[in-house]
């Protein structure tokens, strides 16, 4: 068929070209972000950076590293993720097996979506109010609690998304054999959602480790690695932020290097969750 350049044809091609170029721009932004951060930070990334805590005069360009922030961030994010998992697992199971499409389920999902949208600075302010009310100081514990609250809706959403795709036949079959809903939840649904749980945990962990605004209020910042829950702790995003706000180029360089460390951790988690869920998904019934 001969291609005629009518106005309609041109519009069609123009829109398609426009769509493709938007796609390329956004993908290009991703590449640009990674390239900018890595190319500036990698030269300053030394073994000293990841294996030592800050020594005296670190923030004026003397020696030391950001081990305190790396360990602190891992503590914060793991604690927060564990806390969020404890609460979100029952919520996700309950939403599926007991509530389904009822009104109450609708409200719970709505409230989770709303929680998901509350910015971390507001969580931080709320954590600060909690600390004032309970007489706590900035500490690892406060940081973990606030991160747990932030991660909760992310986790439930991710689990709910997986459970939603579970075939209804499975549940019906188990119920028809006389299982109670609790047994369905524990023996059928939870097995089906195992890959989903792992993806959700990693997703929430990645969000928790990158969050700066909430830990600013609640976890404080220190040069030591915390040894108890009541001590303040450093975190990687704040390490990046504080080092970049000093006027010394050498310290700023290390800020870029810290950003590279953070990016690498987050990318590994993101890719790892994809890989794990692809592997485990083989064992679920679709």
């Amino acid at each position: 068929m001969k291609r005629r350049w009518t106005r309609r044809r041109i519009t069609e091609d123009l829109m398609k070209a426009w769509m493709l170029s938007s796609f390329v721009i956004v993908a290009g932004c991703l590449g640009l972000i990674l390239w900018t951060v890595v190319s500036r930070g990698l030269p300053a990334l030394t073994w000293e950076m990841v294996s030592q805590t800050p020594k005296g005069g670190f923030y004026m360009g003397k020696e030391g590293g950001v081990l305190n922030a790396i360990i602190g961030s891992l503590y914060l994010a793991s604690g927060g993720t564990f806390l969020a998992l404890l609460i979100s697992l029952p919520i996700a199971l309950y939403l599926k097996t007991y509530l389904g499409k009822s009104n109450w389920g609708h409200y719970v999902r709505l409230s989770l979506d709303v929680l998901w949208g509350i910015p971390s600075i507001v969580y931080g302010a709320f954590g600060f109010i909690l600390m004032l009310a309970l007489g706590l100081r900035a500490s690892l514990l406060a940081g973990i609690v606030v991160l747990g609250l932030i991660e909760l809706p992310i986790m439930v959403r991710a689990m709910d998304e997986v459970i939603r795709r579970m075939p209804a036949d499975l549940e019906h079959a188990a119920l028809a054999l006389g299982s109670t809903r609790l047994e369905v939840a524990l023996n059928v649904v939870s097995r089906q959602m195992l890959p989903g749980i792992i993806t959700a945990v990693l997703l929430a962990f990645g969000r928790g480790i990158g969050d700066a605004a909430s830990v600013l209020f609640t976890a404080g910042y220190t040069d030591r690695i915390p040894t108890s829950l009541m001590q303040p702790t450093a975190s990687l995003p704040l390490a990046v932020f504080f080092q970049l706000s000093t006027p010394y180029p050498a310290v700023q360089q290390r800020g870029y290097a810290s950003a590279v460390i953070l990016t690498i951790i987050v990318l590994l988690i993101s890719l790892g969750s994809r890989w794990i869920s692809a592997r485990l998904n083989k064992y679920t019934i679709k």
Partner: peptide, 18 residues
């Protein structure tokens, strides 16, 4: 997913540098 996973502070560094 990768774009969504990048932490805000890294976006900030990118903004600052680029």
């Amino acid at each position: 997913d990768l774009l969504a996973a990048i932490p805000p502070v890294v976006y900030g560094v990118w903004g600052l540098l680029a």
